[in-house]
Computed example of a mutant assay.
Amino acid sequence: METCDVLADMSRNVEIKAKVRNLGDIVSKAKKLSNSEGTWIEQDDVFFTVPQGRLKLRTFQDKTAELIFYDRPDCDGPKLSKYEKCTLPDGSQIASVLSHALGVKGRVKKNRQLFMVGQTRVHIDNVEDLGNFMELEVVLSEDQTLDEGQVIAETLMADLGVEKEDLISGAYMDLLQK
């Protein structure tokens, strides 16, 4: 599979995103691979208008938040994503400031079941107004190559029964705006 490339100096992961055909099947496989029931996370992501990449404020049920900038290509299959995160005790004030300063591009609300499989975050997402998706994020160490991350992603993809034709490009925000 081809991988697309982007920035430097940031945290990196190799990720894939795919439409889920059989929710029960993929959750069952993720539980087995992670040897856990997973963790449920409710997320409300507000995307801001920026000249490059994506900037979102992710707010959790307890009102804590993460401001996340990331840049990755919009292509199917494993792709390199570079990102920076800032954790905030309360996201409400920064949301207002960023909304006024940059403008809001859109909002994505989802319920996410997170499974850890080695160094990979396996997300099973129910996205409001879109449906069910699966996302893999292979978090790369400084000394790991993109190729090593791709192999891990492709192996997990196969283990979870994700087909190439189920892969999607872009972000949930892009799908909502179509």
Rank of each mutant, 00 (worst) to 15 (best):
F133R: 11
T145Y: 10
E135L: 10
E148C: 00
S169G: 13
L130N: 04
S169Q: 12
F133N: 05
Y172S: 02
V162L: 12
Y172F: 14
T120M: 09
V139P: 01
E142M: 05
V108M: 08
G170M: 00
F115S: 03
F133Q: 08
E137S: 13
L130T: 09
I124A: 05
R107N: 13
G149T: 09
L160H: 06
D143W: 05
V151Y: 05
G118K: 11
E165M: 01
G161V: 14
D159F: 02
I124K: 09
Q113A: 06
V117P: 00
E142I: 06
G170W: 00
E128R: 14
K105S: 13
L146P: 10
L130I: 07
G106Q: 10
E137D: 06
L167I: 12
V117G: 01
N111F: 01
L146V: 15
V104Q: 04
T120R: 11
N126S: 10
L140S: 01
F115V: 07
V138F: 00
V162Q: 02
L146C: 05
M134H: 04
L140K: 01
M116H: 07
N126Y: 12
G131V: 11
I152W: 08
S141Y: 08
L130V: 08
G170H: 00
L167M: 14
Q144R: 06
D166S: 13
F133K: 07
T145A: 14
I168T: 02
A153M: 05
V122N: 03
K109C: 12
Q119S: 15
A158C: 04
G161C: 09
T155R: 13
V104F: 03
E154F: 07
V104M: 03
D143P: 02
E148G: 00
K109T: 13
S169L: 05
N126D: 07
V104C: 04
V117Y: 00
E154N: 15
R107C: 02
G103S: 06
L167Q: 12
M157P: 12
V151P: 06
E128F: 11
V104H: 02
T120H: 11
T145I: 02
Q150R: 15
T145E: 10
R121W: 01
D166R: 04
K110P: 03
E142H: 11
D129F: 06
Q113L: 15
E137W: 14
T120E: 02
E128S: 10
D147P: 01
L114G: 00
T155N: 14
E135K: 08
